[in-house]
Design a protein around this nucleic acid. Sequence first.
DNA 1: TTATTATTTGACCAACTGGTAAAAGAGACG
DNA 2: CGTCTCTTTTACCAGTTGGTCAAATAATAA
Lengths: 202, 202
Amino acid sequence: MNKPETRIQKKNQAAILAAGLKVFSQFGFRGSTLDNISTEAGLSKPNLLYYFSSKDAIYKALLAQLLENWLEPLKAIDPNGDPVEEILKYAKLKLRMSQHFPRESRLFANEIIQGAPQIGDVLRGELRAVIEDLAIVVNGWVSEGRIRRVDPNHLVFSIWSMTQHYADFEVQVEAIVGSTDPFPAAEQHLEDMLRRMLSVTG
Amino acid sequence: MNKPETRIQKKNQAAILAAGLKVFSQFGFRGSTLDNISTEAGLSKPNLLYYFSSKDAIYKALLAQLLENWLEPLKAIDPNGDPVEEILKYAKLKLRMSQHFPRESRLFANEIIQGAPQIGDVLRGELRAVIEDLAIVVNGWVSEGRIRRVDPNHLVFSIWSMTQHYADFEVQVEAIVGSTDPFPAAEQHLEDMLRRMLSVTG
DNA sequence: TTATTATTTGACCAACTGGTAAAAGAGACG
DNA sequence: CGTCTCTTTTACCAGTTGGTCAAATAATAA
């Protein structure tokens, strides 16, 4: 029933979402203004509101898009694969997302820090369910003796935190490593941490 | 030269800082309003401005206070102590700070995510210097064979991220562990991660 | 007590906030 | 060409923002 989008609509909606991502990820929802976003998008404020009915609508569209990409790699962990390699694959993918999509990460971080007013339900619903499934898989690996004993939830927390840190706290990382690209060393460190934590052959 | 503070001043300044911490840590600087803070502090807005000259002044006072407590434990790492235990002591202290002062952690996280407009200088100055000193110590431990080879900077990043995660992403942690207190298991996991990463006797 | 100082309040301001209405301007299509 | 829809702009609004000011009120000291 929804009409096909014109090329102008496609272009402007994309520009607005890109601008919204930039602004929201830096200032959070309440700290961002429609003026900020519309200026960044190269549109007038009423023109922006012609494409999105409200500030809220832009924010929600961004989060919805983000959550998909967020959950997908988690579900891709293969219970039949090699345990350490599966976990490492996920962790490295997450690190690469921090490297290449830091604003998405910061948008998410802002939302969570502020109490997840928009996506709290998703966290307590779908995310929790996915993590519960993963916990079963990890616990299976543990009881089969294929990885060392580990708390599945906190393993996930440590992967999330160590990887997202490079996006969310980018300015702090930069303050310390200077102009060095931190990601190669970060990946090596992440791999070391997880291999030593999980490998049964110590 | 500065006059002694009256008890009313002490009380109201403390109330304002407590209110500012609560509000700023939830909404970030730009997302917070003087009305929020003054209401939270139980004062009228002009009355609040009688004690702090501007919104900025409250925020800066909070950050200054915070940065002291932030850097102190880092300097307390003893080059002459047992390497693994020294690092673990620091990590556990950091975790306990997340547990008992989550709002301070979120205030800091908000500031960093938003590009550290206020404390960028401190990060590139004092923080960087402290981390450089620590790196020398850690590299010494490595070359003495007392801990396994590790990148000092990224070791610190992983400790910061894994510990602060429980404060900054509290709502996400809660969504997954439910009403369980996450901190005992978090401490165990943190200790496992670091011991297995660092201990030469694997 | 009174004089002095410290504190609090209410009224106010200019700039900015998210959002609206109507009309002008562009594009697409027959 | 003309018509019709899509897009953009101009002008506007009520509520909120950080902050000021003078006057009123409480503490305190002599």
